[in-house]
């Protein structure tokens, strides 16, 4: 009865390792490798092509002294805060209403969610048309006799970002509602029975019992919307092209324009590194919350 030594562990589960190769390569080369490359070359003097001449924070200096960039950052902050608050609040309220055993639930859900199936390009173009002051909603209301009615957010520098917001919320709130509804459906039925027996009003149960129970759903939704906001690009391209002037520029567009249209790779890389940092600031507390407290077994 011979003793058998442990076979080489590298060859055990070989098929599984082969099958996982695309994932491993993608992780290492794209998600880790490319990100590191970008961060590294954001410290270089690259212009039309990346060069190995490193200049410290010079690109960042320039970046934050460029009015187009600071405007982009301000825009995304305004857009981000409003769209987060609005889509979470409205999404939750719609979901709570949908959860009242209402009739036509499926119809309502289909209506609220269909914009999410559309491209940002499609969304942007439709709203560009509706918000167009000379032909769209404003004209329609004026035609009805209300001559002084103004609804020209899209045409003014200081309001154009709200025009983007209207379109963005139109597309995204249904998604938040769907997630919230799934979360609400996951709440134990007995909670509702208990609160009815205790005589607690429904709205109070929502605020003090159900929402705290749905913490996980809220946090996850928040992270998903937030990381989507940072990427905001297509909608702006389709709806305003960053205009009027630079009034609706956003960081992702800054990166694209400097990378491909203006041939200033160094600026683009610095800008994308700032985007990366922002996402990490959102992500790290989340990772910590979700996975940090759980000790490996």
């Amino acid at each position: 009865m011979a003793h058998q030594a442990r076979p080489n562990p590298y060859f055990r589960n070989l098929n599984a390792k082969v099958a996982a190769t695309p994932m491993i390569l993608t992780t290492l080369i794209v998600f880790v490798g490319c990100s590191v490359w970008t961060v590294l070359y954001s410290f270089s003097a690259s212009r039309a092509l990346p060069v190995n001449e490193f200049v410290g924070f010079a690109q960042y200096d320039r970046l934050f002294n460029t009015s187009r960039w600071t405007k982009s950052v301000g825009n995304i902050a305004v857009y981000g805060i409003f769209s987060l608050v609005f889509s979470l609040v409205v999404g939750f309220i719609l979901a709570a209403f949908m959860d009242q055993k209402i009739r036509f639930e499926n119809t309502f859900r289909t209506i609220f969610l269909y914009p999410f199936a559309l491209s940002f390009i499609v969304t942007g173009l439709v709203w560009q048309w509706i918000l167009n002051p000379t032909l769209g909603l404003q004209k329609a209301v004026r035609d009805l006799g209300w001559e002084s009615f103004t609804f020209d957010l899209i045409a003014h520098r200081d309001t154009v970002i709200y025009a983007l917001l209207i379109a963005g919320i139109w597309q995204g709130t249904g998604f938040v509602m769907a997630l919230m509804l799934a979360g609400l459906r996951g709440v134990d039925e007995d909670i509702w029975k208990a609160s009815r027996i205790d005589g607690i009003p429904k709205w109070k149960t929502y605020i003090f019992v159900v929402i705290p129970m749905m913490r996980g759903v809220f946090v996850t939704t928040l992270v998903i919307i937030a990381s989507g906001i940072v990427r905001l690009y297509d909608l702006v391209v389709a709806m305003t092209s960053g205009g009027p002037g630079i009034a609706s520029e956003v960081p992702a567009k800054y990166v694209y324009d400097f990378m491909f249209a203006r041939g200033n790779v160094g600026q683009a890389l610095a800008a994308s590194t700032v985007m990366l940092t922002t996402v990490l600031i959102i992500l790290i507390p989340w990772i910590y919350l979700e996975y940090g407290s759980k000790k490996p077994k």
């Binding site: 491993i24 794209v30 490319c34 970008t38 990427r231 992702a252 994308s272």
Partner: peptide
């Protein structure tokens, strides 16, 4: 197998990285 979960976790968190960060190297 050992390490699989590590790659997977990086992959998932990597999906939150803005595409712009990886565009030029790609």
């Amino acid at each position: 197998f050992r390490g699989a979960e590590v790659f997977f976790t990086i992959l998932i968190f990597g999906s939150f990285i803005p595409y712009q960060v990886m565009l030029y190297p790609l």
